[in-house]
Design a protein around this nucleic acid. Structure first.
Lengths: 111, 111
DNA sequence: AATCTATTTGGCCAAATAGCCAAGTAAAGG
DNA sequence: CCTTTACTTGGCTATTTGGCCAAATAGATT
């Protein structure tokens, strides 16, 4: 999985890169412009090393770029279209948000 | 995380539901219509119980619905728009697919 | 009712992921 | 050159996820 050269693997890497609360929050924050690692650390409230690793993963997935200026490293979204992507995600499931197919975990479910 | 009632949690559940090779393949297959669990088991080549659990997860995320007819349970995509969603995912990162930000794992990377 | 097929569930183990801490690197400033 | 600030990396545990097997459930068939 290290080098996602085929399409499914790249899709999976991208989806995984956003499928975590801290990473989603990071991506969301970066929509309004670049942020340094410690900005983002303050945002998500985890250890800076943890955040750094999240950023590395997102970068490897192709979501982010990094630029070092002085002591700080600024991360930036590579794509301009995250907002519409989120709308696309939200639009995936049109109807009831809170109880998605509520009986999905009842034993002996379908009837 | 069990009942994703807030927006980020629902987004994450949806993204996770697709961020796995078997589940992505299942979603892809269901684009051409409903399939039974053993159809899908043949498709992904894992134990049927494993596939059943993948399906449960995807269903809990709100991606799928299930309908039992006779002995079989048929799963179907809840949304009609998966294809355009995949295009949306692919479009997230416009440029070079094979080596996304190649120096992302070099030590002391930015310079 | 006994059996067969299709599926779900529970239990358990292995692998992947996420977290923290400590140590290392890099640029800036004294 | 020593220190400080900002990050990254390595190492270690803890949690989560994925997978298989065996057992349970459900409807169809005999």
């Amino acid at each position: 999985m290290s080098n996602p050269t085929d399409r499914p693997a790249r899709r999976i890497a991208l989806l995984k890169a956003l499928a975590h609360p801290s990473r989603l929050a990071i991506a969301d924050a970066l929509q309004s412009g670049e942020r340094s690692v410690c900005d983002l650390t303050a945002l998500v409230g985890a250890d800076i090393s943890t955040v750094s690793k999240h950023l590395r993963l997102m970068r490897a997935a192709g979501l982010l770029t990094a630029e070092k200026r002085g002591l700080k490293v600024f991360y930036r979204l590579k794509c301009p279209c995250l907002l519409s992507f989120f709308e696309c995600v939200d639009g995936l499931v049109p109807d009831s948000p809170a109880k998605p197919d509520a009986d999905a975990r009842r034993p002996g479910f379908p009837r």
